[in-house]
Structure formats: C-alpha cells, structure tokens
Amino acid sequence: MNSHSNKTILICDDEPNIRESIRYAAVKEGYQYKMVDDGLAAYETACADIPDLVVLDVGMPNLTGYEVCKKLRQRPEMEQTKVLILTAFGQNEDKVKAFNVGATDFMTKPFSPRELRAKLNELLDK
C-alpha cells in the first residue's frame, strides 16, 4: 500500500461489478474508500463523513448523480470536495450538465482502470 492512504474516496454506483472495478482502482492506488449503491445514500454518507473525492454514477435510484452533486455543492463544507462524474451517458451535453452541477471532473463508461487511477491521483494529489 502507498502514501495516499489517508485520502478517502466515496464510490457511488448501482452496478455492483462497476463498483468493484472502481474499488479495485482505489485500493490499488492506496486510497480509503466507501461504497454506496444509491443516490440518497451517497449524499447522506458524504454529509456524515466528508470524503476527499466522490465518484458518482449518474443513473442511480432515488437521486441521480447530478442531483447528488448539486446538493453536495449547496453545502459550504462540501465546496472543496472533489466530485468525479462517471457515466455511460457520454454525450457532450452530459459533460456540460455535469460541470453545471459543480462536478470537478467527468469520465465516460466504459473506462480504462488505468485511466481511472490516473484521474484519481490527479484529483487527489494536487
């Protein structure tokens, strides 16, 4: 395990296999992680214990990723939290929408785990 272990990533996706692949990436890069499978849980978990990065799927039950992101950004303590939107909706307008709700970065599915790891490091290592 490496030096990044003090940083926490909140992984939000309703697809268990995708959660697993994100988890694998986070673990490989030495980050702490939490996993949730729906939007509301994502928001509540983030609020309870502010993570360093939230990896958000868009199509989730109860709250979509966009909604979660928007709500998080409404909380002052969440202003600096990094949010990565990770979605299979890969159109430009989806990207625009993501940035409009305050996402830090955007990545489309299917993704390369190598790329994801690089993105995690980029977002957390600054």
Partner: peptide, 18 residues
C-alpha cells in the same frame, strides 16, 4: 440502449484490463 450497452461493456473492459 447505448447507456445500457455501455454498462456491461464497462465491466468487461474494466476487468479484462485489470
């Protein structure tokens, strides 16, 4: 459809790369 197709594809791609 593209979204739904991408979902299994994402897993396939991720785990094959892993």
């Amino acid at each position: 459809v593209s979204h739904e197709l991408r979902t299994p594809l994402t897993s396939i791609k991720s785990f094959s790369e892993i």
